[in-house]
Amino acid sequence: MDKIINYINEGNYFIVTSHVNPDGDNIGSTLAMYYYLKSLDKDVYYVLDDDTPINLKFLLKDIEILSSEEFINLNIEQYNLIALDCGDLNRICIDKSIIENSKKLICIDHHASNDNYGDLNYVMPEESSTCELVYNLLKKINEDKNTQVIDQKIATALYTGVVTDTGKFSYSNTHPSTFEMAKELLILGAETNKVICEVYGNNPYNYYKLLGEALNTLDIINNKIAVITLTQDMLNRNNVSFKDTDGITPYCRDIENVEVGILVKEKSSNEIKISLRSKNYVDVSKVAKVFNGGGHVRAAGLTIFNETIENAIKMVVAETLKYI
């Protein structure tokens, strides 16, 4: 933390970014770092080559997110890159040339699969979220400077990340420190009711039509594995974007006797995204790793290319059964 703090203090130009398929911890941690760097009068650019899920757009109303092309066209040299919540160098959602040309790559992350790919790394797999790591970093800055650097905007962003990555404080990655962090963020003005309403209480009608169709695909295997499938036809028929379907994942896992939930999502004709969630004992990151994916013990993901949905399901289920 000290090395990262010192380097931030010395630098002038920064990019903040994260992984593909943005989620709450992705956006919350990146945005909190963006706001903090802005408070230091640094030149900061939020760069991400992906769209934001509809339920997280409220965080970014006043933020300009640049594409890689837009940033490259600015012709900025000697910049530093901070990658947040990205467990793999290849999942950083910007053009590779931006990564390669950065003066220093700083990695802040909590994925167990992270191999410390940065020049400076603050990687703590045991923490609830990357937002908790950013909170720890800012808290240390508070202590060093004897001043409060977490304002309401930062607190709200961090609260969003920790709430979503812990499943509203219900997952096994929720620790006493997580509740302490949430308490402090409440004291600092985090708009908690707004976060819950926007993230969980504003799904469009079409989302529930899609959810109904998705639940009709539910298949239970050996009473321990549940599979739900989303096809492109289902998404198009209900006019729901691929990026707005993560909320369906828990429905796979939250069934009596089921240990592993598998959500299979057809992103295109040759690309299938699979989300894995476990309840008690299966380390789904090991399953994901077999298919060049990654993640956490209880939550992981992978991508299968150039296979039918049926074959993709068979492959992942067969691997998962080894751990049941």
Rank of each mutant, 00 (worst) to 15 (best):
K103N: 14
N142H: 13
V163E: 04
D165I: 02
N90R: 15
C107V: 15
I92S: 09
S68V: 14
I99Q: 06
E127W: 01
L89P: 03
L89T: 07
V162T: 04
L105G: 07
G118K: 08
D144V: 07
C86F: 05
H111N: 08
G161V: 11
L81W: 00
L105C: 08
G87A: 08
Y79E: 01
G118T: 08
G87N: 07
P125N: 05
N121H: 09
V149M: 10
N73G: 09
S97Q: 11
C93N: 12
E77P: 01
N90V: 12
L133Q: 10
R91S: 10
T130Y: 04
C86Y: 05
I108A: 03
D85Q: 00
L158P: 05
L84D: 09
T160S: 14
T147F: 03
K103D: 03
L120D: 03
Y122P: 03
K103I: 07
E127M: 11
Y135L: 12
T147L: 12
G87H: 10
Y135K: 13
I72T: 01
K103A: 02
N73L: 08
N73F: 07
M124A: 14
S113T: 15
C107N: 15
N146Q: 14
I82M: 07
L105N: 13
H110L: 13
K153A: 13
I141L: 11
S129F: 01
I150W: 00
E143C: 10
I98S: 04
D88L: 09
I94F: 06
I82R: 05
M124E: 14
F71W: 08
L89F: 02
E70V: 04
K139R: 15
I106K: 01
L158Q: 05
A112R: 13
A155W: 08
Q78F: 04
E69I: 14
K145T: 09
G118H: 06
I72Q: 04
S97E: 10
L84C: 15
K104T: 14
E143K: 15
N80W: 11
N114M: 07
T130R: 10
T156P: 03
M124G: 01
Q78I: 03
Y122A: 14
L105K: 14
R91P: 12
N90W: 05
S129I: 10
D115S: 11
L120K: 06
I72F: 02
L138A: 03
D85C: 01
D144T: 12
F71Q: 01
I154M: 05
L137T: 07
H111S: 06
Q78P: 01
L81K: 04
D109W: 09
K96A: 10
N114I: 08
I99R: 06
C131E: 07
G118P: 11
Y79G: 10
I82D: 05
L138M: 03
S102I: 00
K104M: 06
L158C: 10
